[in-house]
């Protein structure tokens, strides 16, 4: 098992390198000089050259890429073109906020999505089922930006229950987490529901009933665990997306997270920061995928034996 984990972690490395190359290429080869964007309209050509020299934006593409990767291997992610600060320090400072946001949103997603999906499946075609499907559709369709502002207007401005911006206390995270979770709750409800429905049709569920088990027991003990496999995948994927892509939510609620860092850097072509953020997100997604696979093995003994079997 440990060997399996190690192999997966190592497999992550070429993926991250590949991604870094693609992003580096895109950022460097598309039009738009960082110098012009950062220095402003009054900078002369010599200013631009001074800047480029200081930031290491010289030499051809391959030289720059290799230099950059060399730095990365030693833990040096360079300095931000825009602020001249250490990129890694900037990124690390932003991670806690995004982590809290993603975790909170994931918790809401799970606490609402899974039970509603389960109930929908058990009471298929009932009013509960139809209304939860409707709500799911509604929340996927509503743009996060709009939802966030609406929630802010209602709960912060009108009712004055919650703060609108910033990260003063845990209260500040409630609206952003709800906003971020909204679209994902929908997908989780649907996948839980369909997974449950599929399991309910299985023969061994019939066996369980034939043994005299009550519906409650059948659902809790037999259906649920078997239905969890695809659900776990979706939870994992969604969490990874939240970690890397909560950009809109962070912007609307003025949260100092990774998303806002990414937006600012992309707009200003602050390449070192963009690279660091993207690689970070890639690593996060890779790790989460690994955790999901490990969870699979934990849930489903057939998969566990496949992994250990490889060892033998």
């Amino acid at each position: 098992m440990a060997k399996f984990v190690l192999k997966r972690v190592l497999a992550l490395i070429p993926v991250v390198i590949g991604i870094s190359f693609i992003i580096f290429a895109i950022m460097n080869l598309t039009p738009g000089e960082p110098a012009r964007l950062i220095l402003g309209p009054y900078a002369s050509q010599s200013d631009v050259e001074t800047f480029n020299q200081a930031m290491g934006i010289e030499g051809n593409f391959w030289e720059r890429y290799l230099n950059y990767m060399k730095g990365v291997l030693t833990g040096d992610f360079g300095i931000s073109y825009r602020t001249q600060n250490d990129v890694l320090a900037e990124l690390v400072a932003r991670i806690p906020c995004t982590l809290i946001l993603a975790t909170g949103a994931a918790a809401i997603m799970v606490l609402i999505g899974i039970p509603v999906g389960i109930i929908s499946a058990i009471k298929q075609y009932s009013i509960l089922d139809y209304s939860s499907m409707f709500m799911a559709l509604l929340f996927t369709s509503v743009p996060g930006f709009w939802l966030g502002i609406m929630l802010m207007l209602l709960f912060s401005l009108q009712l004055e229950w919650l703060p609108a911006t910033g990260v003063e206390s845990w209260l500040s995270y409630i609206l952003p987490c709800i906003t971020l979770a909204a679209a994902f709750v929908a997908s989780l409800i649907r996948i839980t529901r369909s997974s449950m429905l599929e399991i309910i049709r299985q023969d061994y569920i019939r066996t369980a009933y034939a043994k005299g088990a009550s519906e409650k027991r059948v659902v809790m003990k037999h259906v649920l665990r078997n239905a969890m496999l695809p659900v776990v995948t979706v939870v994992g994927i969604n969490f990874a997306i939240m970690m890397g892509g909560a950009i809109v939510t962070e912007s609307v609620f003025a949260l100092p997270g990774v998303g806002t860092l990414l937006i600012t850097s992309v707009r200003m072509k602050d390449i070192p920061v963009v690279m660091a953020v993207v690689m970070f997100v890639a690593v996060v997604i890779g790790i989460i995928n690994l955790l999901v696979d490990l969870a699979y093995a934990y849930i489903d003994p057939r998969i566990k034996s496949k992994y250990s079997a490889r060892k033998r």
Partner: peptide, 20 residues
Amino acid sequence: RGNKISMIFQDPMTSLNPLI
């Protein structure tokens, strides 16, 4: 069910819960 009357089904491959 399971107590006074039991039933067994056709396909044994799918009659048992794979996770228990």
